[in-house]
Nucleic acid binder design. Structure first.
Length: 306
DNA sequence: AAACCATGCAACCGCCAGTAG
DNA sequence: CCTACTGGCGGTTGCATGGTT
């Protein structure tokens, strides 16, 4: 017998949230912060479980959510990050200000996976499908270097292969298959640092060298991945844009200084961990859809003038 | 106009790790 | 050390919507 859900025990409401519930939750968190999620429903007068409240807040009510469609730049970044982090949606989301893990996960499952497959790239390994299909046995004892593996296995952020460098999703573009660029194991040239890492093919190394480098690179990667600023800098030099040659839509207000006046009021209630993880915050609700507009009004009322 | 299908998205489920008692 | 509780995460489901037949 499986466990009953937390909602089952207490005959709690499930399913879509009504505007009234949203408002209750929003007002409560605005006023008191979220503190202990499990006690929020009671305090806010909601027939929901704490988990449900938390999810609703994180995925929908948070005033700093970006909403709207993903830009090409964001999509490429997600692909890049997925190649490094695998299905660690929350970690990926932490590097896309204003986007939730759920949103990114949905995008990946419904859209990006398909796009990659159309381009002949395996969405799991980020390698050409032909290589994945044919080459299973070739690297027998080595697990895939991409996705679902500890970060320390990666010596650098994953670039698209050189031959894929233009217009990743350009309908006219079709990637060359394996032969032209060989194995797509992401790596560095020796002596590379986070900032001057050269995307290239992995070099053959001895185990000792690998271990040493792993340690070194792990530190770099940890730093890089934990710092959106560093990541941004690294990406600016090395990233999808430069590789994919993608037209970047300008988003002038996308990143703001956390000390900006508009965000200062939010800092009062924003969970500290989130503040630390996302120093680069965007203005809330840049591109709200219609549904988002309602919430924008609500959140603006709730947060704009505390 | 109705039925069917595909897609996107919101929310739930179940597991896990951390922690307080 | 054990147990219960909580928050967080990734996988999955189910509904709403829009497009097609």
């Amino acid at each position: 017998m499986g466990r009953q859900s937390c909602c089952y025990k207490q005959k709690l409401r499930k399913g879509l949230w009504s505007p009234e519930e949203d408002e209750k939750l929003l007002r409560h968190i605005t006023k008191y912060g979220h503190g202990c999620w499990s006690s929020i429903p009671k305090q806010a007068g909601l027939q929901r479980c704490g988990k449900s409240c938390r999810l609703r807040w994180i995925n929908y009510l948070r005033p700093d959510l970006k909403r709207g469609t993903f830009s090409q730049e964001e999509e490429n970044l997600i692909i890049e990050l997925h190649a490094v982090l695998g299905n660690r949606w929350s970690q990926i989301a932490a590097r896309l200000p204003g986007r939730t893990d759920n949103e990114i996960k949905n995008l990946w499952n419904s859209c990006l996976k398909k796009k990659l497959k159309q381009k002949g790239i395996d969405p799991v390994t980020h390698k050409p499908l032909s290589e994945v299909e044919n080459g299973e046995g070739n690297r027998s004892n080595k697990p895939s270097l991409v996705g679902h593996h500890p970060i320390h296995q990666y010596t650098s952020p994953p670039p698209p292969p050189p031959k894929l460098s233009s217009n990743w999703f350009n309908p006219e573009f079709s990637p060359p298959m394996t032969a032209s660029y060989g194995p797509l194991y992401y790596g560095t040239t020796t002596g590379g640092s986070a900032n001057n890492t050269t995307w290239g093919l992995v070099q053959t190394q001895t185990e000792e060298e690998e271990e040493e480098e792993e340690e070194e690179e792990e530190t770099k990667w940890t730093e890089l991945l934990n710092s959106p600023l560093l990541m941004a800098a690294a990406l600016q030099n090395q990233t999808p844009q430069s590789y994919y040659n993608i037209e970047i839509k300008s988003e002038p207000c996308y990143l703001t200084n956390s000390s900006s006046s508009s965000s200062s009021s939010n800092d009062m209630w924003w969970p500290q961990t989130q503040q630390q993880q996302l120093p680069l915050r965007h203005e809330p609700l840049q591109n709200p859809d219609i549904c988002g507009k309602d919430m924008q009004t609500l959140t603006a009322a709730a947060f704009g003038h505390i």
